[in-house]
Write a protein that binds this DNA or RNA. Structure first.
Lengths: 108, 108
DNA sequence: TCGTCATACCTAGACAATCTAGGTATTGGT
DNA sequence: ACCAATACCTAGATTGTCTAGGTATGACGA
C-alpha cells in the first residue's frame, strides 16, 4: 500500500522486531507489516540480505529449525544487538527531532 | 557534530527551508545547520546537486544575483514545490508513525 | 603584503542501501 | 494436477549521499 523506502532505518526496524523474541525471516517480514499497520511491506530481497548483514555484524545470531519438513532460519538478538538497538533508537529520535525542527520553520 | 545520513529526506528538508523565503545555496546549508541545532551540517557536494535536481523537477527555480562582486544563485519554491512540500511532509509524518509503531513493540 | 579563512559555486566518481527479478523447494487447498 | 502461500536465497540495477577535488572573491590578521 504505502510506498516504502526505508531511508536507512531498516537495521533499526529489524532489531526492534526481534526484540519481541526470536523469529524466522519470513515472520520478520510479516511482523514488520503488521506492526506498522501495513506501511512496511518489504520484499524478501530486502530483508534476507539485511538479516545476513546483521549476523555478520554480530547483532543477531541464527539457527536452523526444521518444523514440519520446513526449514526455517531463526534469528535472535545478541547482547550487542540489544545495545545497538538502544543506540540506534536514540539516534532515530534525535533525527526525528532534527527534521521536525526544520519542518517547524514553516509553521512555528 | 552529529552523524548525518539524510535517509532520503533531503528533498523535504530543502523544500522546508526554502518555505521560509528565497535563499542562495550556501545560505541553505547554513539554514539547515542552524535550524536543526547543528544536527544537519551537510557538505556542499550533497546540497548543490540536490538543489539542481529540485530545479530539474520544477519544485524550485533559481536566479543569479550579483551582490558585492559575489555571484549567488538564489532558489525559491514554485507552487509545485509548495505542494510537494505538503505532500512529503505528510509522508514523513506517516513514516515516523510507522517506525515508532514498530519501535513500541519493545516498550508498549 | 601575504597568507589564510570564510564565502560561494561546481562536478566526477565512490560507496552504501534498497529493490527488482530471478531462482529453489515444500505444504495445503481446490 | 495445479496453484497459492510459505520459506529461503542471490546477482545486478538503481538511487541517494558523501568524498574529494576544482574555481574565484573578499576580509582579516600577521
Amino acid at each position: 500500500m504505502t510506498t516504502s523506502q526505508l531511508k536507512g532505518n531498516l537495521e533499526l526496524l529489524l532489531l526492534a522486531v526481534l526484540r519481541g523474541g526470536p523469529l524466522h525471516g519470513y515472520a520478520v517480514i510479516a511482523g514488520l507489516r503488521e506492526r506498522s499497520g501495513g506501511s512496511f511491506d518489504l520484499p524478501e530481497g530486502t530483508i534476507y540480505p539485511a538479516l545476513h548483514k546483521l549476523e555478520r555484524e554480530g547483532l543477531v545470531l541464527s539457527s536452523w529449525e526444521d518444523a514440519a519438513g520446513r526449514r526455517r532460519r531463526i534469528y535472535e538478538l545478541t547482547p550487542r544487538g540489544e545495545r545497538a538497538l538502544a543506540h540506534q533508537s536514540e539516534q532515530w529520535h534525535s533525527f526525528v527531532r532534527g527534521v521536525n525542527a526544520v519542518l517547524s520553520v514553516v509553521t512555528p
